[in-house]
Design a binder for these strands. Structure first.
Length: 1160
RNA sequence: GCGGGUGUGGUGAAAUUGGUAGACACGCUAGACUUAGGAUCUAGUGCUUCACGGCAUGGGGGUUCGAGUCCCUUCACCCGCACCA
């Protein structure tokens, strides 16, 4: 009876579906196991053999766990929002929901192409998915909860004190009680406000402030705008400066966008990597992406241009007003800034909101006075007088006089005025400001120290604060906002030219010319915070505006880039490392003692970093800081096919919809394109098109592709829940995903975002675990094996005609092609490269062979049936082929074992050039193709779909073969050749149960040998599965089947246990034989066989006997011999004499049941 | 440049703690059988040598009675990051 895979596999697929064999139980006494595959996007192209690789592995593991008595959750669904469906919709006008459905369920697309459908393709592979739990992200019943989670994030802030996300209502309560001064939050809010101010804020102002705290927020940010796709892209959606999908250019654009404050979780996202069992490379990628660096931020005072070269100086030099005590006063001013009175704080918040149109400074030093507020450009001083000032009226008058002499106007308010009616105060200030001329209106520099010309310090971030005494210049990114302000007139032209040049360079150019040093001095200087020395301020494009503060303190002795810069521009290099030579390059190590470093002298980096941070802190020039490369994730997309936001606007204030209004369903639109004003497609929907509408308008953006996939693993636990995204008790039961299998391409996208959302939901108490995927395996890519044919292009030479008849030029493509088999083409190619050779050399041989091939070609060319030849029989001339072979890919379906089926292939219109062509074949008459291993792609005609193979060999064979190919994680070439071996194995196994046409097993006691073969397999299969070594188990099964075949075993007990081990790999076949053995239940829950070591024990063992480590012969000895007896037996053995050569052995090593080694 | 990974026959690969290198397959060679099949079975197949033997896990060195496995060094390829301060 033959193994009929088609009939048999259909039968069991039906059985499983009807009996819901693989439904997971939400309430079970059994231990749980959650095996998950990465969420597929259902593309119209369908699956090729590479896709199911991971699904097969997770399915095998799931089935194994069921045999082990686990309650297994093994679900599947679709990440069905996405760009391709939308692009297709734009082209064809078809609703993306329709094409998405076709891609999943199968059908015919608009162009008439048959779509197999993801579900059908998955079904034929025999996966044990619990299909009742299927989810689709584009289904409103699913995205309702995506929106709901968004709302929770919107209504949360990150409390640094408790290190978790908390309800925004609690934050509002704090604001109402005491303002924001004591709140420790991950926030973009820079200023403080009091409780009183908070209560006086308008709704819009409150909303704006809360935006600075919410974990998802609206802000004007520079985004990666992709004009071709008409949307914003996240950083991880861009590779090498172009969009990952489609490869379109991307530009920077300022847009109002929703973002996710993932940076709040940066630290935890790095730390908790230690708690998951993932590959090092993925963890490493995440760490790189988050990019944590520890160090310090340091502020360098900018000396004004007046100091630099004396030009334009109106008053005597002095980098700050305040005479000789300025540094003391500055420190005092800083302290006062940090501890404002309530009135000051209140006023400050209002003053900096920029409604006044001018820049105001707080606690600023002028002459010997610290003023409360000053607008330098308008020379207006604003003082708030408290009780202290009442006792100092005289002093205040003197102070006012001095300031007025300097050209300032001083206005005063009392605490009472400020707190009582701040609006009145503001109005007063505004009218004062408007009434005064701006000093920048005339080009003349007015302020003595150039404060009017720019900011007062440059902030840098450094990981090596210990090297601060090595700083003798600074470099700003060319785009740095201070550059224009600090540049002296003298250098203005050069600096602007450099900025312009840097701007024109693309990101790529800048990265490509990493080695090239360029930069420009600005003419400005900063003050070294410790030495008080002047340090030059340069700009250079090796400093990136997007990282840190966009400025560096250059330590040429300790940083190679700074060193190169200094060398290039002849800037002095101060060595700060003892016993190091920095003439050829910087010393970047951490083991040298510091010198020339004041209080750090003698310390090594480890201690010096701490000491320097302490000093920086004490001097109030900076603080210890941890910097992350990770940016907040842009969450808006200007697209149609994505989740709408649960947000509406009223008076331009965004509000979240009430829960009972969710989901906000996607409205119908006339076109899936942006509006003429550049608004996203959803702006096309009128009010009545929205099923949910509130306020003035709904949010027009949609969520990005990763929204739905960031929490889908939770929905599978409770896919039909209408009152919660997942019931808490179900999330508690199923907990983390125990085994997650998928490609490594999601390292910094999906895997980071889902960890972020998981942590968030954990913080807010919705789930009880803060990492989603406990163990992850990344399957390697299956590469295609493309086949090539090698053609020679024909041409006509020396064409003349005795009758002078006109002969048209012969188009090359009209000439019949000549094809060379791979070997011969290769010889020609190699021979072409040989210019000279020695007699008798390998080269000579090749050239000789090439000669022969060329002769063959020449002979062929004589016999070519060439239509022009017939047409002009009188022509004199020769027809010749080039001798340079050109490789063309040919569809692998016409190639078997590298042999091309010329007949079949030439009938394919894609390869019509094979028609009427000439072939120089091997002697056997076969045309042998060349091959190359590369990614599967349509253009290489090397795509292998699982469907054809399942039809040909059966799903069981394909499942086993994909595993048999090699370790799961490794990339490997697909080669259909080997599948025969696996197919033979399953057939051989089938024959164990059959004798001819009859099913035949015996029920006797199994023999010792049978039991040994079986238990060897049980051990191997169990051990190897535990370490996810799927490939070796197939070998183990083959070995067992081979042995049992040799033993002519048809023992029911042995074969039953064999079937259980086989069943995860070849489930259909296992079920069939299981039922034939008389079982009525599915094999899927049958307990895994128990290994019994005693069956493996043998009475004798063939010892490999080595002399000096080289195995010479084997000697069979009883296993119960002692070490001494083994040694005696071995030395006494006949063969030993030869190797001992009469000498006594120096040493004999005996490892019982392993090896004997004799040292002579 | 930094980080991670991989190098074993003609091919995919085994060798889990240092103990017979190449299991299991593919392919190839020869043969048997035959309802001529992509079936089944038998034998052989790392390289080299007529053979004894010698040489072999990218290269070089070391530790060890014994190294694919441990250590040092070096090369090649793949992946990720990259003037990241």
């Amino acid at each position: 009876m033959d193994y009929n895979h088609i009939e048999l596999e259909n039968k069991w697929r039906k059985f499983w579906a009807e009996n819901k064999t693989f439904a997971a139980q939400d309430n079970s006494e059994k231990p749980k196991f959650y095996a998950l595959d990465m969420f597929p996007y259902p593309s119209g192209a369908g699956l090729h053999v590479g896709h199911p690789l991971g699904y097969i592995a997770s399915d095998i593991y799931s089935r194994y766990k069921r045999h082990q008595g686990y309650n297994v959750l093994h679900p599947m669904g679709y990440d069905s929002f996405g760009l391709p469906a939308e692009q297709y919709a734009i082209q064809t006008g078809q609703h993306p929901a329709v094409t998405t459905k076709t891609n999943i369920e199968g059908g015919v697309d608009k162009a008439g192409n048959k779509i197999a459908g993801y579900r059908n393709q998955l079904d034929i592979m025999g996966f044990s998915f619990d299909w009742d739990r299927e989810v689709r992200t584009s289904d409103p019943s699913y995205y309702k909860w995506t929106q709901w989670i968004f709302k929770q994030i919107f209504n949360s802030w990150y409390n640094k004190a408790t290190n978790k996300a908390e309800d925004i209502q609690e934050l509002i309560a704090v604001f109402e009680k005491e303002g924001n001064a004591n709140v420790k939050a991950e926030t973009s809010q820079e200023t403080n406000f009091s409780a009183v101010e908070w209560s006086n804020y308008t709704d819009k102002e409150k909303s704006d402030i809360l935006m600075n705290y919410r974990l998802t927020f609206l802000s004007d940010t520079y985004v990666n705008w992709c004009p071709a796709l008409g949307t914003v892209l996240a950083n991880d959606e861009i590779k090498d400066g172009v969009s990952e999908r489609g490869g379109h250019p991307v530009e920077r654009k300022l847009m109002r966008q929703w973002s996710m404050r993932i940076t709040a979780y940066a630290n935890r996202l790095i730390q908790d990597l230690d708690t998951v069992d993932w590959s090092e490379s993925i963890k490493e990628q995440q760490k790189n992406w988050i990019g944590k660096s520890k160090g310090a931020s340091v502020k360098f005072k900018i000396l004004t241009p007046t100091l630099s070269e004396g030009k334009g100086a109106i008053y005597s030099p002095g980098y700050m007003t305040g005479g000789n005590h300025s540094h003391l006063l500055i420190e005092k001013a800083q302290a006062m800034r940090a501890n404002p009175t309530e009135a000051e704080a209140a006023l400050w918040t209002r003053l900096i909101s920029k409604q006044l149109g001018v820049k105001i400074r707080q606690q600023h030093l002028i002459e010997n006075y610290i003023v409360d507020f000053v607008c330098l450009s308008k020379k207006l001083v604003i003082e708030v007088d408290g009780e202290i000032h009442n006792q100092q009226i005289e002093e205040d008058q003197a102070r006012t006089k001095v300031l007025e002499e300097k050209g300032y106007k001083v206005i005063r308010f009392t605490n009472h005025e400020v707190i009582g009616n701040i609006d009145k105060v503001i109005t007063k200030i505004r009218s004062e400001i408007e009434g005064r001329a701006s000093i920048t209106d005339n080009k003349e520099q007015v302020l003595p120290n150039g404060e009017d010309l720019g900011g007062d310090y440059i902030e840098v971030f450094t990981t090596r604060p210990d090297t601060i005494f090595g700083v003798n210049f600074m470099v700003l990114a060319p785009e740095h906002e201070l550059v224009a302000k600090i540049t002296t007139n003298e250098y203005k032209a050069e600096v602007e030219a450099y900025q312009q040049a840097a701007k024109l360079k693309s990101e790529r150019d800048r990265q490509a010319n990493v080695k090239e040093v360029s930069g420009q001095f600005t003419g400005a200087y900063a003050l070294h915070p410790f030495t008080g020395e002047k340090v030059q301020i340069w700009i250079g494009d090796y400093v990136l505006a997007s990282y840190g503060t966009g400025a560096v303190m250059a330590v040429p002795a300790g940083d190679q880039r700074d060193w190169s810069f200094a060398k290039h521009f002849n800037i002095e290099i101060i060595n700060i490392f003892k016993d190091t030579d920095i003439s050829e390059g910087a010393y970047e190590g951490k083991d040298a003692e510091l010198i020339n470093s004041d209080f750090l002298n003698g310390l090594k980096a480890k201690k010096a970093i701490g000491a320097s941070i302490k000093a920086i802190h004490e001097k109030e020039v900076g603080k210890g800081k941890t910097q992350f490369r990770l940016r907040d994730a842009i969450f808006s997309r200007q697209r149609y096919w994505g989740e709408p936001f649960p947000i509406y606007y009223k008076d331009e204030i965004p509000y979240a919809l009430e829960d009972d209004r969710l989901p906000v369903e996607l409205p119908e639109v006339d076109k899936y394109l942006p509006t003429e004003d550049g608004e996203p497609p959803l702006a096309r929907a009128n009010k009545q098109d929205w099923k949910t509408f509130e306020g003035d308008r709904m949010e027009y953006n949609t969520m990005p592709g990763w929204a739905g996939s960031s929490w889908y693993f939770l929905r599978y636990m409770d896919p039909k829940n209408e009152t919660a995204f997942v019931a808490k008790e179900k999330a508690d039961y199923w907990n983390q995903v125990d085994l997650y299998i998928g490609g490594s391409e999601h390292a910094t996208g999906h895997l980071l975002y889902s960890r972020f959302w998981c942590k968030f939901l954990f913080d807010r108490g919705y789930i009880g675990f803060n990492e989603p995927f406990k163990k992850m395996i990344n399957q390697g890519m299956i590469l295609g094996r493309s086949s090539f044919v090698y053609t020679l292009i024909g041409s006509v030479v020396s064409l003349t005609d005795p009758e002078d008849e006109y002969i048209p030029e012969i188009p090359i493509e009209k000439a019949p092609r000549l094809f060379l088999t791979f070997e011969k083409a290769n010889v020609l190619r190699i021979a072409k490269k040989i210019k000279a050779y020695k007699v008798g050399s390998e080269e000579e041989k090749i050239v000789g062979e090439a000669q022969k091939i060329i002769e063959e070609i020449n002979i062929k060319s004589q016999s070519v049936d060439f239509e022009l030849k017939k047409k002009y029989p009188n022509r004199i001339g020769t027809f010749e082929y080039s001798t340079i072979p050109v490789a063309y890919p040919v569809d692998i379906k016409y190639v078997d074992n590298d042999v091309l089926d010329i007949e079949l292939a030439s009938n394919d219109p894609l390869f019509s050039y094979l028609k009427n062509a000439e072939f120089i074949t091997e002697e056997s008459g076969d045309y042998i193709c060349g091959h190359e291993i590369e990614k599967m792609s349509k253009s290489k005609y090397n795509i292998q779909t699982p469907d054809e193979l399942v039809e040909k060999y059966g799903a069981d064979t394909l499942r086993c073969y994909e595993m048999f190919l090699g370790p799961l994680e490794q990339a490997k070439p697909w080669d259909t050749k080997g599948i025969n071996g696996v197919s033979n194995f399953l057939r051989k196994l089938w024959r164990l149960f059959h004798q001819g046409e009859i099913f035949n097993v015996n029920e006797e006691e199994p023999s010792k040998k049978e039991l040994k073969a079986l238990h060897t397999l049980i051990k191997k299969a169990s051990d190897d599965l535990e370490r996810y070594s799927f490939n070796t188990i197939v070998s183990g099964l083959m070995i067992a089947v081979n042995e049992l075949t040799d033993l002519k075993c048809n023992n029911k007990q042995v074969l039953s246990e064999l079937l259980v081990i086989l069943s995860p790999y070849a489930p259909h076949l296992a079920e069939e034989l299981w039922s034939k053995l008389g079982n009525t239940e599915s094999i899927s829950q049958e307990p895994w066989p128990i290994f019994n070591a005693s069956f493996l024990e043998e009475d004798a063992y063939a010892y490999p006997v080595s002399f000096n480590g080289k195995m010479r012969f084997k000697l069979e000895l009883p296993t119960n011999l002692s070490k001494e007896d083994i040694e005696k037996e071995v030395l006494a053995a006949e063969q030993s004499a030869k190797y001992l050569d009469g000498k006594a052995p120096k040493k004999v090593i005996v490892v019982p049941k392993k090896i004997v080694n004799i040292v002579v």
